[in-house]
Simulated assay, not measured.
Amino acid sequence: MNIFDIIALTNANTNWSTQIAFIMITSNIFAIAMGRYAIQVRNLGPSMPIAGLQGFGLTELLATTSLGHVIGAGIILGLRGTGLIA
């Protein structure tokens, strides 16, 4: 079985909806809020004094939004697998 057979077996449903956008935004906000209090060593990169995130640098923002996207993708794939969202 080569890569093209695996790609053919995957679901090609790539519809984007407001439900999916809401799930992704919510999971990113959750990850940023969680990282704000969980990251112990901060201010290692450029600072971003936006939206009350003083002391929360670019590296922390990229790390938490990366985690938020992983969480959001897992939630979206899980809900699609169970048929709760289209």
Rank of each mutant, 00 (worst) to 15 (best):
L77E: 04
I71Y: 00
Q19N: 15
G74I: 03
L67G: 01
M24L: 14
N13A: 14
Q40K: 15
F30S: 04
T64P: 03
G52Y: 06
T18K: 11
Q40I: 10
G55S: 13
L44E: 08
I75Q: 03
M34I: 12
I39A: 02
L58P: 00
L61T: 07
V41Q: 13
W16G: 13
Q19V: 14
H69L: 14
A12N: 11
S47E: 14
I32W: 05
R80P: 00
I39M: 08
I7E: 04
H69Q: 11
L53R: 03
I25W: 06
R36F: 08
D5L: 07
L79H: 01
I75E: 00
I71T: 05
I20V: 15
I29S: 05
Q54P: 02
Q19K: 13
S17M: 09
G35K: 02
T64F: 01
L62Q: 09
T65P: 02
G57M: 04
G72H: 01
A51T: 06
M48Y: 05
F4T: 11
I29N: 03
P46S: 08
L67C: 10
Q19G: 13
T64G: 00
F22N: 13
G52K: 05
I32Y: 00
P49A: 08
S66E: 01
N43C: 11
N43W: 05
A33K: 10
T10D: 12
I20T: 09
N15K: 15
E60P: 03
A8W: 03
P49L: 08
L44V: 11
G74N: 07
F56Q: 02
I6F: 06
A33C: 14
Y37F: 13
D5G: 11
L44W: 03
N11D: 15
H69R: 03
F22W: 10
D5V: 06
Y37E: 09
S47Y: 06
G78D: 07
S47D: 12
A8E: 14
D5F: 01
F4E: 14
I7S: 05
R42W: 01
G45V: 00
P49F: 09
A51Q: 08
T14W: 13
H69F: 07
A51D: 07
T65D: 06
T65H: 10
N43H: 12
I6D: 13
T10K: 13
S66Y: 15
L62H: 11
G52R: 10
I75C: 04
I71P: 02
L77N: 09
Q54I: 07
G55D: 10
